[in-house]
Amino acid sequence: MTKKEIFLSSAFTENSVWKQILGICSALAVTNLMSNSMVMGLGVIFTLALSGFTISLLREYIPKRIRMMVQTLIIASYVIVVDLFLRAFYPDMSEALGPYVGLIITNCIIMGRAEAFAGKNRPVDSLIDGIGAGFGYTLVLLLISTVRELFGFGSLLGREILGDWWTRWSIMVMAPSAFFMLAILIWIIEGPLQRKKLNKG
């Protein structure tokens, strides 16, 4: 596969969220505001890319039996970097995201890519795969958070859009709507694909 194909496949056709249903926890939790989603997405791209690169570099030396543990530790080190960076430069954002920054460690996408790709491929390819998967993830976060912020707060990226006449849908800010929005997103994307497959088969 060329580098471009790797990127496109991990970002779209094999998208972790809607194809493999991974990394749902944070996809639901931080999507009430667009700015939160954007920062979370960038953090995940950073961690995915660099941990993929590192795990791929070390893949010959990691004993098979303890590879999960080693991978987790590598991922945790990069998450600490993200967390300290946010705390130092964007304390408000760090407070808003709370424990979800730390929870990037257990984000199944990162572990999934490490197992499925970085453990078997060359470092640069793994780096690109990580960026692609992170990009696909961020895209989902932004799609969901756009709808939730627009209807829930009447704003986009913190800027007033809808004005006073709009009655805020407080349900959009609360937990259940995150589940519904993600389900609808999966429905819209997967529905046509699966129908096509059924018609063919």
Partner: peptide
């Protein structure tokens, strides 16, 4: 169940309704 909702989609909607109940 509508084709695109089978599996994860349906589970998410059920979970959403459960979350509404827990409110």
């Amino acid at each position: 169940v509508p084709t695109g909702l089978q599996g994860a989609g349906l589970s998410l909607i059920i979970t959403g309704i459960m979350a509404l109940g827990f409110i």
